[in-house]
Amino acid sequence: MNEHAAHRRSFSGDIVVADNAAVCDPSGALYFPELGLLVVSDLHLEKGSSLARRGRLMPPYDTAATLLRLQSVLATYAPRIVLSLGDSFHDGEGAARLPAAFRVQLEALMLGREWIWVAGNHDPDVPADLPGSCVQEIAIAGLAFRHEPSRNAVPGEIAGHLHPCARIVQRGRSVRRRCFASDGARLIMPAFGAFTGSLNVMDHAYRGLFAWERFMAYMLGDRQVYPIASSLLRPG
């Protein structure tokens, strides 16, 4: 049976992390209106060419797709500060491989706003030859931004690295989507890049990071974000 979507009250994407109001955008970006701060994580730019170097000839369009997505979300929120939360490039030479046209496009996006590159495990040496400042981690308004989530509970930590996704089963069908993972105290960002895979929030890798009873997965839909409680989530 194929029923069309019924219209329902929709979730606006507004959440609170460690007392800061934020908006979960269905693109996978997180916006803090009071700070004028937009956070994206795990762009993995030049992943296609990184794999091609090792003989897997992925389409070379991932950087274009990711930048396009970034451009659109920047146009929506017009943030004062942009923070790229690590693994901005898929490997250490990614920034050097960036085709000239994309470099121009990226620099145009950076123009007129503060841009912060946080170091990631794929790009420990943050792209020094691009504009913007490079940091290992950074604290803003009581929030701590770092690439890899720390093992101990740190209230107000915003991290990336794990590429969270969540899965539900509804009416006999399974839906898996990238998600913001949060228990209200800390948050892990979904990966923003076009070629980035994802890891279920029920995987061992997340063990101990969240207070599970307060955990929500904010799953990315096509036009909005859907808040799903931990009781509905499935592994795999």
């Binding site: 049976m1 194929n2 029923e3 069309h4 979507a5 019924a6 329902r8 009250r9 929709s10 979730f11 539900i168 509804q170 009416r171 006999g172 069908r173 839906v175 989507r177 799953m219 839909g221 096509d222 036009r223 859907y226 808040p227 799903i228 409680a229 509905l232």
Partner: peptide
């Protein structure tokens, strides 16, 4: 029959509504 694949977002919306 279960719903077909195009309706993924509908399923998410349903699950979200349950909450």
């Amino acid at each position: 029959e279960s719903v077909k694949g195009e309706a993924n977002d509908t399923l998410l919306a349903e699950a979200a509504t349950l909450i």
